[in-house]
Design a protein around this nucleic acid. Structure first.
Lengths: 200, 200
DNA sequence: GCATACGGATAGTATAGCTATCCGATAGCG
DNA sequence: CGCTATCGGATAGCTATACTATCCGTATGC
């Protein structure tokens, strides 16, 4: 365990915490006070840190996506789990139906279920925009939707390129969780680029 | 204050907390135990809730972006504040220079300063991808960068459409903070759409 | 004249994510 | 064989955040 800690750069106490929280499977005990951790443990630990540190997942969310990877759920099911774990749950009753309508209007031709976390989250953002006095943002949102379609297509292409179900499932989770961080990072870089282009 | 609480649906105790934390300016005291809150206070309160609830900002981050809106800082400066407040700070020393190189390679032709939070965040995501054994993701990342450019262009167009500096600054902040929530929401909807397209 | 409501100050609460200490067992060393 | 250091596991403690609840003196309005 000490070795796992040094190679992964995660404190021993934290590893113990992840074991307790069932994020990490226990090593196989060799004697009563020695356990063996192999490369699978190291890989899993790195995945955990990526999800939590970079993706910003909570420990409970991380656990549920890890379970989804380990299960034999279908890809769409794994996607659903991954999506729910990165989204704050929103009850559709809390939303103004008019906001949902406007989102659906934006997404015409898309096949999206009514309780898709992204659909609800988008409606909530729209409502917040309205609350702040931001209006006439239809064009803005439409361009976001176009970009989202590009990204999702890239995501699915990447997932399909993976060899087997296990690898595909992991890419679904990693892509969903880290993809959010990636797109916002690149967006900030692009914002600075365009800003400097227009302000000089 | 009770009125402000009912119209905004924010508990009185929470409003007091925001006053204490200097997110909300104090109402003008009329007598020793009465204060007057106007529509500016209501607007500000709604903005605070949008930033915190929908945008996921911490109270301290919210305070710093509100200060940026109220200041007479230039738009690029306001952008920088907004970007820093939505990003977890990353020291460039913690990153593998090779990851930064690969991001810079992706961003050729872009005018981005070395300490742009998005550039650093993207490098960190790249490093996390590598750590979980995800490779050959150059094409994937490039498509993300393309989408980011589309989004940033839409952002800047929207900002420029605003009448004056104050409105522009508010759109910078609101757009930066809520835009992240919007794009990830739309991405999830698009993922479901493309998935169902390909799996049926 | 007095219950009620006000704003401000202060203290308390809940949760999350670690982190530190204690404990008995055992491995290595001489 | 003895002794110290280290192991894994269990438990308790810590820190930060975002509220939330109570108390208090003042003042309003019926």
């Amino acid at each position: 365990m000490a070795e796992l800690s040094t190679t992964s750069d995660v404190p021993v106490a934290t590893i113990k915490y992840y074991l307790r929280e069932k994020l990490l499977p226990a090593g196989e005990s060799e004697t009563a006070n020695q356990a063996r951790y192999g490369s699978t443990h190291l890989d899993r630990l790195r995945l955990i840190r990526a999800l939590i540190d970079v993706g910003g997942l909570s420990v409970v969310s991380a656990r549920s996506v890890l379970r989804a990877i380990d299960s034999d759920a279908s890809l769409p099911e794994t996607f659903a789990v991954a999506q729910r774990s990165v989204s704050v749950p929103i009850a559709s009753g809390d939303l103004d139906p008019a906001d949902l309508d406007r989102i659906d209007e934006l997404l015409v031709g898309w096949h999206v279920s009514p309780d898709n976390p992204g659909r609800l989250a988008s409606a909530r953002v729209l409502s917040a925009f309205r609350g702040v006095g931001q209006t006439d943002d239809r064009g803005w949102f439409a361009r976001y939707a176009e970009a989202a379609l590009l990204i999702a297509t890239a995501d699915l292409d990447e997932i399909e390129s993976r060899p087997d179900r296990a690898a595909k499932a992991e890419t679904v989770v990693v892509g969903t969780v880290l993809g959010d961080a990636l797109i916002s990072g690149l967006r900030r870089a692009a914002q600075e680029h365009i800003t400097s282009q227009r302000f000089s």
